[in-house]
Design a protein around this nucleic acid. Structure first.
Length: 493
RNA sequence: GGGCCGUUAACUCAGCUGGUAGAGUAUCUGCCUUUUAAGCAGAGAGUCGCGCGUUCGAGCCGCGCACGGCCCA
């Protein structure tokens, strides 16, 4: 027999041999009656005295094979877990055993048999039938160290999921988080909706959009940077409580906290204020944390964070004074603040707005220090073009942002429902854009028109689901909670 | 955009002061009917990310590029 150097070549030869013996390598007629979980349940129900003559039919991927000549132990895995099986030549027959000898780790097999306990005390399925279900041509990564290289893990996430159980856990938790959000809102009479991902005018946030083109309509469209303006049209339409969980797209840099597409929860509640939403947010996080981790106390990057109960609420300027260490006398004076910033070597792009300077200083001096959940309130009107002005101080808005573990997690506010006010805010944004601010909002006349029909007072909030998933799974990078994070294509050779 | 680090067998990693490639797992062959990262004996396996340069000689030194990671902007 000719000796080949290559593992894949060796496997292809095995495949050819199996094929020549009329073995179907990819059959689709194996009927599974039980999962690994069913096996464990059956053992439990029999109070660990299960009889070997009970028959189970299971299927899964072989993760390990210990060969002993005329018998083998294998480990196989399905969606519910991993189990051991014992394959004996005298049980499955000479012919089936010859086929089995040609199988590899990574192949899918179907097994039929009863359950017994080995000498070492492990419950094991002893097969009286074994069938190849799917042949693997490529070998899996090494069983003990698994797949570690981050680049390989992200590019071939399926291998990451096969080899790394902690990675599987993260994405199961992520799914549970989204399920918990749905349950939370549905229980409170919210309606789940879907609004356009492709928008003629990208609105609802300050961000650079991705541009695309609709051929039949002959028009440019933008992938949404936020669903906000459409959701509020629905509030005009009478849906008083709505939420949407979907992707936003922002044409910005990639980092441990940013992916170009990310999942956003946005919700709107009529007759509520931003204060109500802070209460609601506390409740929701408590609920999510309990559902997903079993506790409201979580550990994130070695910090113990308590998501239960009522959280700290702090005006922006107060946070800058007490946490950022800025003299209160500076906070009303843009020039002095800029001097202060440069003395701390904080670079701030040129702006005519005090609010932008304050916001930047906050990002650098305060945000990383907000480890326990904290609502920051009292955002300046010039950086909050969709937020309702405060009744007592027209320089400020009824808006908050939520910070946990030094990350911005949520942004919420009482909504502007005065069309005139909103139009003037847009006009200011348009002027800013003309003056060079590429992230300033566009005028959206259609949205103003909707407001002119009357939107009830309402408050709305957006929560970054990826960031929440990072928190609840103790992930340091957003790529660890996104199944297929964006990567540049790797050019081979 | 800048800085630091990484890229060696299918996987995880060694590789000294520049002297021509190593281990474990996996694979292949043989033995083995209760193993637990099974064991024993043997074997094969490499575009050292890519390119250029320095050198008698480069996985190692220099320059450039690609991809990735972390940090900063």
């Amino acid at each position: 027999m000719d000796k080949t150097n290559d593992i894949i070549e060796t496997r292809r030869k095995k495949l050819a041999e199996l094929k020549n013996n009329n073995i179907n390598l990819f059959p689709n007629d194996f009927i599974v009656s039980h999962t690994v979980r069913d096996l464990r349940d059956a053992i439990e129900e029999s109070q660990h005295s299960i009889k070997e003559d009970a028959v189970f039919i299971v299927a899964g991927r072989m993760m390990a094979i210990n060969r002993f000549g005329k018998a083998c132990f294998i480990r196989f895995r399905d969606r519910t877990g991993q189990f051991q099986a014992y394959i004996r030549k005298d049980k499955i027959g000479d012919q089936a055993y010859d086929i089995f000898k040609k199988l590899d780790i990574g192949d899918f097999v179907g097994l039929r048999g009863g359950i017994f306990k080995t000498r070492t005390g492990e419950w094991t399925l002893v097969a009286d039938e074994l069938k190849l279900i799917t042949k693997a041509i490529r070998p899996l990564p090494e069983k003990f160290h698994g797949l570690k290289d981050p680049e390989k893990r992200y590019r071939r996430r399926y291998l990451d999921l096969i080899m790394n159980s902690n990675v599987r856990e993260i994405f199961i938790k992520r799914s549970r988080i989204i399920q918990a959000v749905r349950t939370f809102f549905l229980d409170r009479d919210f309606l789940e909706v879907e609004t356009p991902m492709m928008q003629p005018i990208p609105g609802g946030a300050e961000a650079t959009p991705f541009k695309t083109h609709h051929n039949a309509l002959g028009m440019d469209l933008f992938l949404r940077i936020a669903p906000e303006l459409y959701l509020k049209r629905l509030v005009v339409g009478g849906f008083e409580r709505i939420f949407e969980i979907n992707r936003n797209f922002r044409n910005e840099g990639i980092s441990t906290k940013h992916n170009p597409e990310f999942t956003m929860l946005e919700f709107y509640q009529a007759y509520a204020t931003h204060d109500d939403l802070m209460d609601l947010t506390e409740e929701m996080f408590g609920y999510m944390a309990r559902e997903v981790t079993g506790s409201t106390k979580i550990t994130y990057q070695n910090n113990i964070i308590d998501l239960g109960g009522r959280w700290n609420r702090m005006p922006l300027t107060y946070a800058l004074e007490t946490i950022g260490g800025i003299d209160p006398g500076l906070l009303k004076d843009k020039e002095k603040l800029l001097e202060f910033a440069s003395s701390k070597s904080i670079k701030i792009t040129k702006t005519k707005y005090l609010g932008k300077v304050i916001s930047k200083l906050f990002d650098v001096l305060v945000e990383p220090k907000l480890i326990q959940p904290t609502f920051i309130t009292g955002y300046p009107v010039e950086i909050s073009p969709l937020s309702r002005k405060n009744e007592k101080d027209s320089e400020l808005t009824d808006r908050f942002e939520l910070f946990i573990a030094g990350h911005e997690i949520a942004n919420g506010f009482s909504e502007i429902n005065d069309p005139e006010d909103q139009k003037n805010r847009f006009l200011q944004q348009v002027a800013d854009r003309e003056a060079g601010d590429e992230e300033a909002h566009f005028m959206d006349e259609d949205y103003i028109e909707a407001l002119e029909y009357g939107m009830p007072p309402a408050a709305g909030e957006g929560i970054g689901i990826d960031r929440v998933a990072m928190l609840l799974t103790d992930a340091a990078s957003i790529r660890e909670v996104i199944l297929f994070p964006h990567m540049k294509p790797k050019v081979s050779n």
